[in-house]
Design a protein around this nucleic acid. Structure first.
Lengths: 236, 236
DNA sequence: TAGTGTGAATGGATTCACAGCC
DNA sequence: GGCTGTGAATCCATTCACACTA
């Protein structure tokens, strides 16, 4: 199972002789969407699905879907399609969500508290086992949605990470604090960061970072709406 | 200024003879990051920046930065670099954030309320001018962070969109409700949707959609951490 | 010397098209 | 007839390398 994602961006520091089929980054991103769609199809009591059907729901071609899935193995049955339940199981295993992940949340502001209450995480097997903040007025308060949790001081992150075998962290602190928090988290042994602060975090290559900048998302829409209008004006 | 983004995914319905330089989608995404970084550089009192410096802060090559910026015009001065202030102004204009955008927010749950309080939107020129929900117990309540706003019924969306010239909407409702809300919003004339519901929305081609699925983000980290560990085990 | 802008070359990802299977 | 898996072809994005400019 030596699946490896093609590096893109990070220029290779070393060139070992390992071949292994490289999986495109975009294919991995789509894998999550396939899973989400399959779960919806399963809830609709459909037990089998074709690449064409799966693709059209996500606005992808059937060939794209087949190729993506083929990167990870042979899941389909010619003439039949894919077994929905089996495919869900396989994709969960590939993504690593066939087990529980303990997660810590840093930043107990508006966004942090909303994230602590977010039901979607639990459904996918992510459990928030610690909430941290620097504000002394917040430390000690109970987290409403996570009833047995109390907001702790940042200094206690390392202990929690070790005790609860935490590998993922959510960073929901102001931009100025984010780099320092990232530093502390990686030093404590966290392997992946979901960053909501509007800064580009600088971390070791062995730590994965995924950033969501809410304002940037709106900015992209602003651009798209602007250019679409131009196209409309041109009379298409 | 007939900038057009390359379509990817949507197969061409028509083949007009218009050439125009196609801008890669990834370049547009990076444009927002350049802007964010430039604003940070400006706050650090630096007035000029090279493609190399801008790139290294974002882990991109200098060539990438130059090519991206060149898609939109000639901004740099050989031997000098880019004028930070001028470049900020130009990028804001390209992205359309050189003016205010009125935005509506649908869904007054945990996430919706956190988004209403998010300072990042205001800083970029996005103003929330209406908050909507279906829950009768919420309708009429004041939005704490937006003091002159009251939560309204979904039925009033169309009026607000018309009166306030709203083009963008944030969808923070449960998955089951999202498609219906998207439908109402587009019918009311909204041109771009920022969707937080874990579903793929089906809308007219003239409406832009940007989706953020928080659980999917963690799922991607789970995958990356999993494969990274495999690589570590292999002894790199 | 330091640095941009850009054609040409490279490297990846998507789509095509079809052999093979149910 | 319907559908997968996959090499080959195409399309697109990134990187290289260099002419050119301050």
């Amino acid at each position: 199972m030596g699946a490896r994602v093609t590096p893109r961006g990070t220029r290779g520091e070393q060139g070992s002789g390992m071949k292994s089929n490289n999986i495109p980054v975009p294919a991995v991103r789509r894998l999550s969407l396939y899973l989400r769609q399959l779960e919806s199809i399963w809830r609709a009591d459909q037990r089998t699905v074709s690449s064409k059907q799966l693709g059209s729901a996500l606005k992808l071609t059937d060939a794209q879907v087949r190729k993506d899935l083929a990167y990870f193995g042979q899941f389909g049955h010619p003439g039949i399609g894919y077994d929905v339940e089996a495919l869900i199981t396989r994709i969960r295993k590939i993504l690593g969500t066939d087990r529980l992940w303990n997660v810590v949340l840093v930043g107990a502001g508006n966004l942090g508290m909303a994230l602590s209450a977010h039901r979607g995480f639990g459904k996918k097997g992510f459990r928030i086992v610690g909430v941290f903040d620097t504000d002394p007025r917040k430390i000690g308060l109970h987290v409403p949605s996570l009833d047995d949790l109390v907001i702790q001081s940042i200094d206690q992150i390392a202990d929690t990470v070790r005790e609860k075998d935490v590998r993922l962290a959510i960073v929901a602190v102001p931009a100025e604090a984010a780099q320092d928090i990232a530093q502390r988290l990686t030093a404590a042994g966290v392997r992946g960061l979901l960053n909501f602060a509007p800064v580009s975090l600088d971390v070791t290559a062995s730590v994965a970072v995924s950033s969501v900048d809410l304002a940037v998302q709106l900015e992209q829409l602003s651009f798209q709406v602007g250019t679409m209008t131009l196209i409309d004006d041109a009379g298409e």
